[in-house]
Design a protein around this nucleic acid. Structure first.
Length: 500
RNA sequence: GCGCCGUUAGCUCAAUUGGCAGAGCAGUUGACUCUUAAUCAACGGGUUCGGGGUUCAAGUCCCUGACGGCGCACCA
């Protein structure tokens, strides 16, 4: 060891880090920069590969290139060294260093300073080895960035915790993780493309809010020092998008993060990405078509068709029209008993008892129907299914049904047994909306932490007249899960983890 | 929040009834000009998650805390 790095007490570091730090120090002592500002890269590894798709064995092209990548394999033999370089998209290319070409000193310097995981630059001729491997035969090489921490071994699976806590390592080691990053980008782009194609305008609305609303969920609370006031992180996008609709943004959407202070598990993250879209002079039927178009476009963006491939190997077609049922209808079909908005509470409770479902006291008929649906039907809806016409009391932001005032013009979209999206014919009557939110705020005052607050400014906006509007909301992470079959923590690049 | 299971070398894991803490990969040294999970030889590497206890003796048993996984509850 020639130079000390006083920061962390070296004796407490693992042996392999001490060795690598010593190599870094030795390079500095020899006047070699382990972290140069740049290197003379002329080609990406992919470009070299694409320029020479099928060279014969043991061929020299005469083409000189400068390439760089992370060392993923290293085979230092006596007078001929091999390294497999990899760049960000996963493309790999072999570098070879021979005593004859680089000389004794440079070969020794390579062996002494290069470890698995280092970023290196290699200049030389594009050749194929005697075994036919496309390679760059080096005439010069340079460290591009010395890795002082060793990579995990690449022959065993990384632990789940390591993959989430050190996602950068997961990205280096696992192609599936790199693929998810790109798939998420493809999905976001597809969603935007569909909406832009229909003349929607993307806007950004406040994340820090004085009141929480637009959904029933526990919010995160924070504080604005300058205002000396508590603020909430938004739980939904809805109420501000509707303000924009009132103001004349007649087709509007937002894709961004919302925050819910609730359980964390394989399908729930405290922050997740929502898309909400609103279109004036549209109904919940129109917005269902938009939603289907978005999901099918997302599938095509990822898989090239509406046939999706899950990580468990299963294949599912999300193409064509989707099944549409009513809430009461699908519940009736499932349990074999007719349930309608007229079914008395006593009868509904009897169905619950028969099916071993415990119900809280004081529920309305509509709330019981919804509970029965969630317990008995939801998990059976594997193929995409719009479930329509919910009890009006469980959809406080939706207009009453044109044919039955006890129902709301709302649908939920279920795929693979879970809810993926929701859509409404929006409630635009300010008087009815005030009544509904007042009822919600009474529940909040009574201690329900998930109930909506009465947002007077939102009501005031409606009082100026909001056009008839259809709206939808969808969890983007859920969409990724639907397309790939992964858990939510695999669809979010950097999910929340507890401190180590 | 409640319950169950787990945490051992850089990584992935093993360790019988409580009896010397091990393997593969990675690392160090040496050999090798066609390797590609290279091979061969030798060597090094441990606060067994933290704290406390029982015991002649604790990775192993008990208590406690942290973190993780699964189930339940809440929810998208």
């Amino acid at each position: 060891m020639s130079t000390e790095t006083p920061q962390p007490p070296e004796s407490e570091l693992p042996e392999q880090m001490r060795v690598r730090l010593a190599k870094r120090a030795d390079m500095l002592a020899a006047g070699v920069e382990p972290y140069p500002v740049s290197v003379e890269r002329t080609h990406t590894l992919r470009e070299v590969r694409e320029a020479h798709p099928d060279l014969a064995v043991d061929v020299a092209t005469g083409e000189l290139v400068g390439v760089a990548g992370r060392v993923m394999f290293l085979r230092n033999t006596g007078k001929l060294c091999f390294a497999t370089l990899r760049e960000g998209d996963g493309t790999e290319l072999q570098a070879m260093l021979s005593l004859a070409l680089v000389g004794e000193d440079e070969l020794a310097r390579w062996k002494a300073s290069v470890d698995l995981g280092d970023q290196v630059f290699v200049h030389g001729e594009v050749i194929t080895s005697r075994r036919g491997e496309l390679s760059v035969m080096a005439d010069a090489w340079q460290m591009a960035s010395k890795a002082v921490r060793p990579l995990p071994n690449t022959h065993t699976e990384l632990s789940e915790e390591m993959r989430v806590r050190q996602r950068y390592v997961d990205l280096i080691v696992r192609p599936q993780t790199r693929e998810m990053v790109r798939r998420r980008a493809q999905v976001l782009r597809a969603l935007r493309d569909v909406l832009h194609g229909r003349d929607y305008v993307e806007i950004e609305t406040p994340i820090l809010q004085l009141l929480h609303g637009g959904a029933t969920a526990r919010p995160f609370v924070t504080r604005a020092n300058a205002l000396d006031q508590e603020l909430y992180l938004r739980i939904a996008l809805e109420l501000y998008l509707k303000r924009a609709v009132v103001g004349g943004v007649e087709r509007v959407f937002e894709i961004n993060r919302v925050f819910r202070n609730e359980g964390i598990d394989s399908t729930h993250s405290p922050e997740f990405t929502m898309i909400e879209a609103y279109q004036t002079y549209a109904t919940y039927d129109d917005i269902a078509d938009v939603t289907r178009a978005m999901i099918q476009a997302a599938a095509c963006a990822v898989f090239g068709s509406t046939t999706v491939h899950h990580v468990d190997g299963s294949v599912h077609d999300l193409g064509g029209e989707w099944r549409s049922v009513t809430l009461h209808g699908v519940l009736s079909d499932t349990i074999g008993t007719d349930v309608t908005p007229d079914t008395p509470i006593a009868d509904l409770r009897e169905i619950a008892v028969k099916n071993d479902i415990e119900l809280k006291d004081g529920l309305t008929a509509g709330e019981i129907v919804l509970e029965l649906f969630e317990e008995l039907v939801e998990h059976t809806l594997v193929a995409p299914t719009f479930v329509r016409d919910y009890p009006v009391e469980v959809r406080p932001l939706t207009r009453q049904h044109r044919d039955d005032p006890r129902l709301a013009e709302a649908w939920d979209l279920y795929v693979f047994g879970t809810e993926l999206a929701t859509g409404y014919s929006e409630l635009v009557d300010p008087v009815v909306q005030r009544e509904r939110l007042t009822a919600q705020s009474l529940k909040a005052a009574a201690g329900d932490p998930e109930a909506m607050q009465l947002d007077d400014d939102f009501i005031r906006a409606l009082e100026y007249g909001m056009p008839p509007t259809g709206g939808m909301g969808m969890g983007v992470d859920r969409l990724l899960m639907t397309l790939t079959g992964l858990g939510i923590r695999d669809t979010i690049l950097f999910p929340l983890v507890r401190s180590e």
